[in-house]
Simulated scan of single mutants.
Amino acid sequence: MPTTTAAARATALSKIYGSGDTQVTALDAVDVDIEAGRFTAIMGPSGSGKSTLMHCLAGLDSISAGQVWIGETEVSGLSDKALTQLRRDSVGFVFQAFNLIPTLTALENITLPLDIAGRKPDQQWLDTVIDTVGLRDRLTHRPSELSGGQQQRVACARALASRPTIVFADEPTGNLDSRSGAEVLGFLRRSVDEFGQTIVMVTHDPGAASYADRVLFLADGRIVDEMADPSADRVLERMKAFEQARG
């Protein structure tokens, strides 16, 4: 069983696509613990398996071998219905493509997971989320009336509004300018420090990774290194070293 300090955990996690000559091993017997109340960044070159790892840990993708837990629940053993409920109640997501509902306002998109679950939002927390990502004057706008950066901030607010056990973010600042990106990353950092939120973020940006407590480095489907208390410069140096080694 996983320890109580792990918000998510994987043992011998493998993910294989295709078969025969077209078989690709995206994850190769990965062991990882995601500590609760911490901000973890996942980095690696294109094709390293970082997004696949996040999707498997979040229960969005099936696994080929091994085990995955969210909290004390083994994800790989759940029915589709139970897995859907676990993701709805315990997991927040921020996708690169926003995944907003075009007919809903910004506020309705933010509260959608809570509405589906039949839960009322914690108004004080919701106000904190909205004000921190700077959306107070955009709440009645639909996605088509928002810039890409504003849509991404709606997506971040939606992921955090229900205060889930763990938030998975795939390049959450990829479509933001540097100032807006820093605001969102600062809020993710605050949500960990002040509210005990657990964040797992896939990023290629050393500056974004520097907001994390810990960076995991993937290459060829395996965790090959990790860094505590990262800085942008140290992360960039480590990434360059990996690229030179692969080259």
Score class of each variant (00 low, 15 high):
residue 97 A to T: 00
residue 203 T to M: 06
residue 86 L to E: 07
residue 234 R to F: 05
residue 176 L to T: 09
residue 237 E to A: 13
residue 200 V to T: 10
residue 112 L to I: 09
residue 154 V to W: 02
residue 141 H to L: 01
residue 32 V to K: 11
residue 131 D to Y: 04
residue 191 S to C: 10
residue 230 P to V: 12
residue 78 L to N: 11
residue 37 G to S: 11
residue 35 E to K: 00
residue 186 G to A: 11
residue 29 A to T: 11
residue 215 V to G: 04
residue 97 A to G: 01
residue 223 I to Y: 01
residue 174 G to V: 07
residue 103 T to R: 15
residue 189 R to G: 02
residue 111 T to C: 12
residue 141 H to Q: 02
residue 166 I to A: 05
residue 149 G to V: 09
residue 23 Q to A: 15
residue 27 L to D: 01
residue 3 T to A: 14
residue 104 L to A: 09
residue 166 I to H: 08
residue 133 V to H: 11
residue 44 G to E: 08
residue 225 D to I: 01
residue 89 D to P: 00
residue 111 T to S: 11
residue 94 V to E: 09
residue 40 T to P: 07
residue 57 L to N: 06
residue 235 V to C: 05
residue 179 R to H: 15
residue 149 G to W: 14
residue 113 P to K: 09
residue 117 A to T: 04
residue 170 D to T: 06
residue 55 H to W: 02
residue 3 T to L: 13
residue 108 E to K: 15
residue 199 I to S: 10
residue 244 Q to I: 13
residue 107 L to H: 14
residue 73 T to L: 02
residue 40 T to F: 10
residue 170 D to L: 06
residue 56 C to G: 05
residue 22 T to D: 12
residue 227 M to W: 13
residue 177 D to M: 07
residue 155 A to Y: 14
residue 116 I to Q: 06
residue 157 A to V: 08
residue 176 L to N: 03
residue 59 G to H: 07
residue 52 T to V: 03
residue 69 W to V: 14
residue 155 A to R: 11
residue 14 S to R: 02
residue 122 D to S: 06
residue 90 S to D: 15
residue 136 R to M: 01
residue 102 P to M: 01
residue 119 R to Y: 08
residue 187 F to P: 03
residue 109 N to D: 04
residue 170 D to E: 09
residue 4 T to R: 14
residue 26 A to R: 08
residue 98 F to W: 10
residue 190 R to M: 11
residue 245 A to P: 00
residue 156 C to R: 12
residue 216 L to I: 06
residue 195 F to L: 10
residue 111 T to E: 13
residue 12 A to Y: 03
residue 87 R to V: 11
residue 183 E to L: 13
residue 239 M to R: 02
residue 94 V to N: 03
residue 82 A to Q: 09
residue 43 M to C: 06
residue 186 G to I: 13
residue 131 D to F: 03
residue 58 A to N: 05
residue 183 E to S: 13
residue 182 A to N: 12
residue 198 T to G: 06
residue 128 T to E: 15
residue 119 R to F: 06
residue 144 S to C: 00
residue 159 A to H: 12
residue 20 G to S: 05
residue 50 K to V: 01
residue 192 V to Y: 07
residue 96 Q to S: 01
residue 51 S to D: 04
residue 210 S to N: 08
residue 203 T to N: 05
residue 115 D to C: 01
residue 209 A to T: 11
residue 189 R to F: 05
residue 116 I to G: 03
residue 32 V to I: 15
residue 115 D to A: 14
residue 88 R to Q: 14
residue 240 K to N: 09
residue 240 K to Q: 10
residue 184 V to E: 06
residue 117 A to Y: 02
residue 115 D to I: 12
residue 245 A to C: 00
residue 75 V to Q: 13
residue 169 A to H: 09
residue 232 A to S: 14
residue 196 G to D: 05
residue 65 A to R: 15
residue 245 A to I: 00
residue 67 Q to H: 15
residue 229 D to F: 11
residue 211 Y to E: 01
residue 127 D to C: 03
